[in-house]
Design a protein around this nucleic acid. Structure first.
Length: 643
RNA sequence: GCCGGCGUAGCUCAGGGGUAGAGCAACUGAUUCGUAAUCAGUAGGCCGGGGGUUCGACUCCCCCCGCCGGCUCCA
């Protein structure tokens, strides 16, 4: 460390470097050097890549980069500071509350508290008011670097049991604490300079959360909130949340009459109404054709199976908690299938397989039932009975890379057909797992290389693999940005062993197959649920339940309307009619609210010319087309699956 | 499963110990109309279910069911 009179060099950018006296506070430096070019308020700084408080003094040559709210790091710091202010407000109003953890998260922050009474919505309002007062007071965030013992003493005095527990797990001798006003928190930082920097805050909701995410631990109360650099940005965000709610597949499912869940039948069990069913059927037909094209063979397997098969597969050992209790059939317990693999394996094993037959790819739209805990059910996205677009590929080890690549190709093709955004994860070997190190390495490499070859961005999910093999998970995003497990590609070393699945190699000996479990949509329920949100209910023509609505102006146009309707239907176009004695504006409004892609209006002029007046849901300008031209235009759009 | 909130007509929602309300939808009638709401009328409710408090409960209390937001867990 240099003496305070010494000069140090600070690199501000590739072109700009300045000198200052050692000990200069970053904020002072920034006030002099950077404010003119930066309208955005600076939240923190990055010194040689490390995030630090603006209140930190500079002692060595370094590069300095300002951090603003624009950056992900800036948002994180800003919101993390807001969570501290919230914790301070809670402690002010509820001194008995103990603080746990309070990080920034995507779009906001939370803080967990332990308090013997629940926070009410009114409490949230009070807390928010108190936070605004704290912001008004403009309390500086002070960083304290203390020995672990000193920190322990502080949190003992304050009876912050959770902080003490966190401290125990910290290995370093010194820890950092942040204080604003009378509030002290164990925290790495950095933070904004003072509470007054926080401009637009909002508390959103309270929820239970287990201490350290473990359901054996005490349940704490988590308050969620968010913060933005300007009130306008906050309002914008809240508006986005409202809009997302309107895309919610549960609301749209009711409005568009796609599906329902019946209390008397049971939660988590989906009823597909005619309009939802036709969407599903269209996707399933497409799916089947595509699989046959790509060398899959379609199979069907039973919905129940005797105990024996699940003993062999290991389901009773490792998966029983998700399986529904067995029924007695002639004294033998039968279970409803939670997965399709055993059935496919047994089909494979009906004869001796040669290496020449491999790979064998069995595919099935297989309906499975799994017990899901009541609190996790969610519309069509998390249910108890669902149809997986399942397949099991049996191959020999050398074929694994090519097979994975082919599956990934199919996944990508499907996702792009539907215009879907997705995130990919490569889940690696978990601690509790079976199979040799070499096999794992080979399979993981095959998965990784397939992802790179397809140029799919992915994250590693360390230890997230299944016990029997590594996997690629594709996550779909719902309207609120929540990720849902969709397509998955899993390599399996386990079932081939348990079932003794073989093929006869060129050497005449039996060899163990490698098995891939995969789905390319996930399940019909979850996929279509997410699709509803993705399209906001506005299905592309090829999927729209009603593709064209034939509308008449008055009763004298009905006869011609009937002919047009039949003409469309004869051409495999899903056409419906509204010949009611209602105003045309009224019928159009209904069609528009149902998000019908085309409406064909018929009046005197159209009958005279053998045409229809065509209105699309997107562009509202009208065109007059001969019926056969409308048919060919629609047929092309359907065939091309235009999104 | 756990924590919190909610449950009133088909849908969206008001009401808050003393006879249950609106809009839309439905139904009936009139209107025969040119691209997002024609007019009039009618009907519709075990106020999620059960128990309790009370002279009286949709309203207050308890239990159960379901839904919503999270946590934990998954296609």
């Amino acid at each position: 460390m240099k003496a305070e009179t010494d000069k140090i060099k600070i690199k501000l950018s590739d072109e700009k470097q300045i000198e200052c006296v050692a000990g200069t506070i970053i904020k002072d430096l920034i006030d002099h050097q950077l404010t003119k070019n930066n309208l955005q308020e600076i939240i923190a700084a990055k010194l040689d890549g490390d995030l630090v408080d603006l209140s930190r003094p500079l002692f060595t040559n370094t590069s300095l980069e300002p951090v603003t709210f624009d950056s992900a790091e800036g948002k994180k710091i800003y919101r993390h500071s807001t969570s501290h202010v919230m914790a301070q407000a809670v402690k002010d109003l509820f001194p008995a509350a103990k603080i746990a953890i309070g990080p920034a998260i995507e779009d906001g922050f939370y803080y967990d508290f332990d308090l013997d009474r629940p926070f009410t919505p009114q409490d949230l309002e009070r807390i928010e008011e108190r936070m605004k007062e704290i912001i008004q007071q403009d309390l500086p965030f002070q960083r304290l670097e203390l020995s672990k013992e000193q920190a322990q003493k502080i949190f003992q005095e304050r009876r912050e049991d959770y902080k003490l527990e966190l401290l125990k797990d910290i290995e370093e001798d010194t820890v950092s604490l942040y204080q604003q006003g009378n509030f002290i928190d164990l925290c790495r930082g950095p933070h904004v300079l003072s509470s007054g920097k926080l401009r637009a805050i909002k508390l959103l909701n309270v929820a239970g959360a287990y201490w350290r995410g473990d359901e054996k631990n005490k349940m704490l109360q988590r308050i969620y909130g968010t913060a933005f650099a300007t009130p306008e940005a906050l309002t914008e965000y809240l508006k986005r949340l409202e809009e997302a709610k309107e895309r919610d597949h549960r609301a749209l499912g009711r409005q568009l009459d796609l599906f329902s869940v019946q209390e008397e039948i049971g939660p988590g069990l989906i009823h597909w109404h005619p309009k939802g069913a036709i969407i599903r059927m269209t996707i399933e037909e497409f799916w089947k054709k595509e699989h046959l094209k790509r060398g899959y063979q379609l199979v069907y397997t039973p919905h129940i199976a005797s105990r024996k098969i699940y003993e062999i597969s290991g389901h009773l050992e490792t998966y029983q908690e998700y399986m529904y209790s067995p029924m007695d059939i002639d004294g033998v317990p039968y279970w409803v299938k939670p997965m399709n693999c055993p059935g496919h394996i047994k089909i494979y094993q009906t004869k001796l397989r040669s290496y020449r037959e491999l790979p064998i790819r069995y595919a099935e739209l297989g309906t499975v039932y799994r017990y899901e805990r009541s609190g996790v059910l969610h519309g069509m996205l998390r249910v108890r009975g669902f149809t997986q677009d399942d397949s099991h590929i049996f191959c020999h080890p050398e074929q694994l890379p090519a097979e994975i690549l082919q599956v990934l190709d199919l996944v990508d093709f499907m996702m792009s057909t539907f215009g879907f955004d997705y995130h990919a994860y490569l889940a690696t070997r978990p601690e509790k797992s079976i199979g040799g190190e070499e096999a794992w390495a080979k399979a993981t490499t095959a998965l990784r290389e397939a992802l790179s070859k397809r140029e799919i961005d992915y994250k590693i999910d360390p230890g997230g693999g299944v016990f029997y093999g590594p996997k690629i998970d594709i996550k779909l995003l719902d309207a609120l940005g929540r990720e849902w497990q969709g397509p998955t590609i899993q390599v399996d070393f386990n079932l081939p062993e348990r079932f003794d699945i073989n093929y006869v190699g060129p050497d005449g000996n039996r060899h163990r197959v490698v098995m891939i479990h995969r789905t390319v949509l996930g399940s019909m329920e979850r996929f279509i649920g997410t699709l509803i949100e993705h399209y906001a209910g506005v299905f592309p023509l090829w999927l729209a339940p009603v593709q064209v609505l034939v509308l008449t102006i008055t009763e004298r146009h009905i006869e011609y309307g009937e002919r047009v309707l039949q003409d469309l239907r004869n051409n495999d176009i899903r056409a419906e009619a509204d010949f009611r004695n209602e105003l045309i504006g009224y019928k159009i409004r209904e069609g528009q609210l149902a998000k019908t892609p085309y409406m064909a209006v018929i009046g005197d002029r159209e009958i005279a010319n053998g045409t229809v007046s065509v209105r699309t849901r997107k562009k509202k300008e009208l065109t007059t087309l001969r019926v056969e031209d409308l048919i060919s235009k629609m047929k092309k759009e359907i065939a091309d699956k235009i999104i």
